[in-house]
């Protein structure tokens, strides 16, 4: 068996964990659905203003999808934390796979979790919009959404990488959640996930507005709005930026996790 197939097997096993914690899935999906359906549809009717040709629902849903992707990808961190504390990582370290393969497997598993979860939210949003929404979804929007999946996958791996880093440095499970929540608050606040870029530019200092613009979450939410919901062609520049920033996060996270595994090999503990 090749290293690649072992890597895929480990990623698949870890990914299956995502579906084994049903209570967590229920919490995640109920929050996202209530945001999407209650807030989106109700507020969508209360706020008639259109943002760049989009209804409030169409503007909000990409943000919810991106946050869903973020939450699902950060679940990798929880699994890594558990694996470190329960000794499963030590078991993995005895398997015939290189350390970097192990890191890759976790990051890919996080990416898969993110994409499956956000993909499900996106599908629900399309269905909701078809039945309840004030405007129909352009057919090409669905095609663009499918084309965006690999880019969202890379974004999810980047977030999984960051989660892996925070999991590795957390002594206790609660501390990991504090880190994950702090990361979520900061990455979503300094972004255009839920606000238009001009609002950020209007109220926050210029450097913060620039960070928000190049925040991969903003880029993902933006491209979902304009293409998956607006039906406009995909912007290659935005996709390149999304890929670059996401890969940077993935590499940084993978490096941090690799360092932790190396520490285990040197010191017997993270």
């Amino acid at each position: 068996m090749s290293h690649l197939s072992r890597l895929v097997r480990i990623a698949r096993t870890d990914f299956s964990y995502f579906f084994r914690t049903k209570w967590l899935m229920a919490v995640l999906i109920s929050l996202s659905l209530s945001d999407m359906l209650v807030v989106g549809l109700v507020y969508g009717r209360l706020i008639p203003t259109r943002f760049a040709g989009l209804t409030y629902f169409q503007f909000l849903v990409p943000g919810i999808v991106v946050v869903g992707l973020f939450s699902a990808a950060t679940d990798t961190g929880r699994r890594i934390w558990l694996a470190l504390r329960e000794g499963v990582v030590q078991y993995y370290l005895t398997l015939p796979i290189r350390t970097r393969g192990l890191v890759g497997a976790y990051i890919i598993s996080g990416g898969l979790g993110g994409i499956v979860y956000s993909g499900a939210l996106l599908a629900i949003a399309y269905v909701a919009l078809s039945f309840l929404g004030p405007t129909a979804i352009p057919v090409q929007g669905i095609a663009y959404a499918l084309l965006l999946i690999p880019f969202l996958f890379v974004l999810a791996t980047g977030i999984a990488g960051l989660a892996a880093f925070f999991a590795s440095v957390s002594r206790r499970g609660e501390i990991y959640w504090v880190y994950a929540q702090a990361l979520q608050v900061s990455m979503i606040t300094i972004s255009t996930v839920f606000y238009p870029a001009q609002t950020i530019a209007q109220y926050l200092p210029a450097p913060v507005a620039t960070i928000a613009e190049y925040n991969p979450l903003s880029l993902a939410a933006g491209v979902l709005r304009t293409s998956a919901f607006g039906g406009n062609p995909l912007d290659a520049g935005v996709l390149a930026n999304l890929l670059a920033t996401s890969l940077l996060l993935a590499v940084l996270g993978a490096l941090a996790y690799w360092t932790i595994l190396r520490n285990i090999r040197l010191n017997g503990k993270p």
Binding site: H3, T13, Y17, R20, T21, V88, Y91, T94, P96, R98
Partner: peptide
């Protein structure tokens, strides 16, 4: 190390397994 791991198996002092499997 990878080559060693192909020919070696260990039963740990503390059992290590996937909790939900």
């Amino acid at each position: 190390g990878t080559k060693v791991r192909e020919v070696m198996g260990i039963a740990f002092q503390e059992a290590r397994g996937f909790w939900r499997h």
